[in-house]
């Protein structure tokens, strides 16, 4: 039995990744900017409350619409995944892991405050927060990988609405299926953007066999810090 709302551990941020979001490629980092960057990263870590809602659903019968767009319904879930890209991503999957992750409204509120008072502070915190939500999404994905592994299933990687031709239009149902507005405070604008903006929704496939070329080796894996499988002496590719 898994908790429906998981608190995630994001205790450090990769400085070089934060710099990358700021368009850094080897320029001088002055002591002033170094200090402000450090402040922004510390502020991000203290304000962030990274949390996720996670569920998995069995795949229904794959069909296609009149115009040929593939559709994948999920059993016990109103979410229907449409489009060629997600059909390819989930080809052969028996279940789909669904996740919604956010680092919360505290960072969002601080970003709004800085947008009115400190533009440099805003871009630094925004970059730090982007790094933080990616880390949180890694942690959430690792929980789904572990959930699949516990049942002898193999996973590929997370795929978000808006990637390829998976429409943003599936966001309301995806969030509703996880009760993510109530549980995490994630809301949608009429144009289907999430607020807090540092939030991620995604799905990934659970497969009966290892999925070729899906995950890099453990050394390069983004989920490495959050992996619970390796500790048991195996990997998600060799259950």
């Amino acid at each position: 039995m898994t908790r429906m709302v998981e608190s995630l551990e994001v205790t450090t941020l990769d400085r070089s990744e934060v710099l990358r979001y700021l368009g850094y490629h080897g320029q001088e980092v002055t002591p002033e900017i170094e200090a402000r960057l450090g402040d922004a990263m510390a502020s991000c870590l203290s304000l962030a409350r990274p949390r996720a809602c996670l569920r998995s659903f069995a795949c229904g019968t794959r069909t296609s619409r009149n115009d040929g767009t593939p559709e994948l319904p999920l059993l016990g879930c109103a979410l229907v995944l449409e489009g060629k890209s997600i059909a390819e991503h989930l080809e052969g999957a028996v279940e789909v892991g669904v996740m919604a992750v956010t680092i919360g409204a505290g960072v969002e509120r601080e970003l709004r405050r800085l947008s009115l008072t400190d533009p440099l502070g805003q871009i630094l915190l925004d970059a730090a927060a982007t790094a933080a939500i990616e880390r949180a999404a890694d942690a959430a994905e690792a929980l789904l990988v572990a959930d699949a592994a516990a049942r002898g299933l193999y996973t590929n990687w997370r795929f978000s609405p808006g990637y390829g031709d998976l429409p943003l239009a599936c966001q309301p149902t995806l969030l509703a299926a996880l009760d993510a507005t109530r549980r995490l405070g994630i809301t949608l604008t009429p144009s289907l953007l999430m607020v807090p903006t540092k939030s991620v929704t995604a799905v990934l496939g659970y497969f009966p066999e290892p999925h070729p070329g899906t995950r890099p080796g453990c050394k390069e894996c983004n989920l490495r810090d959050y992996c619970s499988i390796r500790a048991s002496g195996t990997t998600c590719q060799s259950l």
């Binding site: 710099l19 700021l22 850094y24 490629h25 320029q27 002055t30 533009p119 871009i123």
Partner: peptide
């Protein structure tokens, strides 16, 4: 030219 990155531009503007 790429010899400044965004935070430097912003710090200078400040």
């Amino acid at each position: 030219r790429g010899s400044f990155f965004l935070p430097q531009l912003m710090a200078s503007a400040e």
